[in-house]
């Protein structure tokens, strides 16, 4: 027993980066979201918050499930994670060669992501927080009007996902947050509320986003569609769902 513990501890030391997860402060403010706050055109208000600079990795998630066995894939409750939960790992406590320690963890449900964030004294970011942080590039807080920003997102959409995921630690944006676009999808706290309009008579049927022409109906500017595809992805999910390209990071309120 002691040997096993020691081995597990050793594994933990290998898997975990030396420092604890890093969070940076983002100022928040008035923000023009692709999803207007009132269903028409109103800007979103984002309170100052702190965001994890990096996605949660396999190494970090391994430490979490070791400490919280109820989130190991063979022990998790079926209503909290679907059958694909962490199946890329070799064994419940062995990520293995297909899930390297510094690669972002994927195939995690919203419930599991939320539980992980709680273990760090944090929570999942809201959509507005996530979108606010992702609007930045390396030099600007809002790079969305730059075609190059949009192209970088679309470039990721155009790449097939047959090859292994890159490791975390991409170029930091102006806030110091990395890999917001171009690595994985990310859970947000309110993923399942993104389709709900404040007044469905004004914005139309919430289901419209799933149909022909929906993009034209709900988008104010055509560059928004790159972001909208992320919303479409999130809105396709249920909280227990997991996918190969869906990971998460955490946020904290100030």
């Amino acid at each position: 027993m002691r040997v096993r513990l020691a081995l597990a501890w050793f594994g933990l030391m290998l898997a975990l980066p030396a420092a604890a997860a890093e969070y940076v402060a983002l100022p928040g403010g008035t923000f023009t979201s692709v999803l207007p706050a009132d269903g028409k055109a109103a800007a979103a208000q984002v309170a100052p918050f702190r965001l994890r600079t990096e996605l949660v990795t396999n190494g970090e998630f391994l430490a979490f499930v070791q400490k919280h066995p109820q989130w190991q894939r063979d022990k998790v409750a079926g209503i909290l994670a679907d059958a694909r939960y962490l199946t890329q790992w070799e064994a419940p406590l062995v990520p293995g060669g297909q899930a390297l320690p510094r690669q972002p963890v994927t195939r995690v449900s919203w419930f599991a992501a939320q539980a992980y964030c709680e273990s760090e004294g944090a929570r999942l970011p809201s959509w507005y927080e996530w979108e606010f942080a992702a609007a930045a590039d390396a030099t600007r807080r809002d790079a969305r009007a730059d075609p190059a920003w949009r192209e970088s997102i679309l470039g990721w959409y155009s790449r097939p996902s047959s090859s292994a995921l890159p490791e975390v630690g991409g170029v930091a944006n102006v806030y110091g947050v990395r890999d917001m676009n171009g690595l994985v999808w990310e859970w947000v706290d309110d993923f399942n509320a993104l389709m709900v309009a404040s007044d469905s008579r004004e914005q139309g049927d919430p289901d419209l986003l799933k149909f022909c022409g929906a993009g034209a109906i709900s988008l104010q500017e055509k560059e928004n569609y790159a972001v909208l595809m992320r919303i479409a992805m999130l809105s396709a999910l249920k909280a227990a769902d997991t996918t190969n390209n869906l990971g998460f990071r955490c946020a904290k309120s100030n």
């Binding site: 959409y157 996902s161 999808w185 289901d207 149909f211 022909c212 479409a232 396709a236 190969n244």
Partner: peptide, 23 residues
């Protein structure tokens, strides 16, 4: 497919019903 990046649906023009099955 599990390794798809995107959600998808299908609208069949041969379907009588909203969205042709898309919803």
């Amino acid at each position: 497919a599990p390794d798809s990046k995107m959600p998808h649906n299908i609208d069949l023009h041969g379907v009588t019903g909203p969205g042709g099955g898309a919803a």
